[in-house]
Amino acid sequence: MKYRKLGSSDLEVSEVSFGCMSLSGTEEENVRLLHQALNQGINFFDTADLYDKGKNEETVGKALRQQRDKVILATNVGNQWRPDGSGWDWNPTKAYILEAVDQSLKRLQTDYIDLYQLHGGTIEDPIEETIEAFELLKQQGKIRYYGISSIRPNVIREYVQKSNIVSVMMQYSLLDRRPEEQMLDFLHQHQISVLARGSLAQGLLAGKSPKPYLGHSAETVAKASEALQQQTPSGAKAMETAVQYVLQHKAVATAVLGIRTQEQFTQALAAANGKPLPEEVAQALRNQVPALTYELHR
């Protein structure tokens, strides 16, 4: 397993990490997958208080508490469940964040969170107040570092300018190259790492039947899948090349893959151990898929 530095922090994260949102098996099955991942060198685990109304955090915490010193634990805050459980509302206020972190710490069975992330955000948010909350939590020792999960360039710029974020989680794949327009280079220049999610484009880059995706037609999706097949070494799978495509940019610290089954874990491990993508191969792939750009929130 290879590791990369997370922004300006002192954390070294595995190039492929465990997106815990997908966990849906029995508790025993979920714990087994999490243990296997850690034993094979995956050290970054991403969850959120939103997932399964906190039960996802509980599963992760129970599975990893005995090896806490080997784990880089990330969770998200900002989506507040309604008392009746009918849905959730966006709440990035300082008061809510300071309240929510204690609940996450309890569910995760730990006294600190390595990376605490704002789970979204808009330019209308009380951004300074949100930053105050994260900075206070750092001072209190409840979190080590903080970041945001956002694809909105205008929001990202605000946090880069005003805060000490070490990471931005954003959707990035061969079929969603919007971050390549400006954000990847911008974040790299500021020593802020990208945590790439959606690297397999809902499985469309891992063998699923082509269908329209974002602004791409089903024909373009099929062309992207075919290009990956052509550029994948003998004995490997196209999804490994899809992941390595994301990792080829220096801004990206890790590809966060949703892992639900033993087969998906095996595939994720193969992708992690794949050979880095030469620049000429990455460029050949780009030439086959038109780039999208952000139309909103610029």
Rank of each mutant, 00 (worst) to 15 (best):
E99C: 14
Q231D: 08
P278M: 10
A201P: 07
V31W: 07
V16W: 03
E181F: 13
K275I: 10
H35Y: 06
K5G: 03
Q264R: 09
L108I: 02
L200C: 05
L73N: 09
I127Q: 09
L257E: 12
K55M: 08
R298D: 08
E158V: 11
L277R: 07
N43L: 13
N43I: 14
S234Q: 10
L118I: 09
C20D: 04
Q182H: 14
I143W: 07
L108A: 05
Q244C: 10
Q189D: 15
T122N: 15
S104Q: 02
R65A: 13
I97E: 05
F134R: 14
L137E: 12
G235C: 12
Y294G: 01
E132P: 03
A95W: 03
L108M: 08
L38W: 03
A242L: 03
L137R: 03
E280N: 15
A37V: 11
V166Y: 00
N39D: 15
G120Q: 07
A48K: 03
E263D: 15
N164S: 14
A63W: 10
I165W: 02
A270W: 01
A37H: 03
E129S: 11
I148T: 04
G54C: 06
K94Y: 14
Y159A: 15
Q189V: 05
A224M: 09
T122A: 11
V77A: 07
D102V: 11
R107V: 01
R298E: 13
R4P: 08
Q139C: 00
L34D: 12
K211F: 07
R107A: 05
F18C: 06
V221G: 14
A270M: 10
Q262W: 05
K211H: 12
A255T: 01
Q80P: 00
Y96V: 10
Q231T: 08
W88F: 15
E129A: 12
F134L: 11
D114N: 12
D84G: 06
H249E: 09
G258Y: 05
L214V: 13
V221C: 07
R32F: 08
S17L: 02
P233R: 13
G203T: 04
K62M: 13
P212E: 13
K211C: 04
S17G: 09
G25H: 06
I148E: 01
F134K: 01
L187I: 10
N30P: 15
T254P: 08
E219H: 14
A271H: 13
L23D: 08
E58K: 07
Q248I: 09
R107M: 00
V166H: 01
L50M: 04
E29F: 10
G258N: 05
L136C: 00
K5Q: 09
L115S: 10
L50G: 03
T220R: 13
L187E: 03
Q67P: 00
A282T: 02
V252M: 04
L23C: 13
G87A: 03
G203W: 08
R260W: 05
R4T: 07
Q103I: 02
L33V: 10
E129Y: 00
N39S: 15
L292F: 09
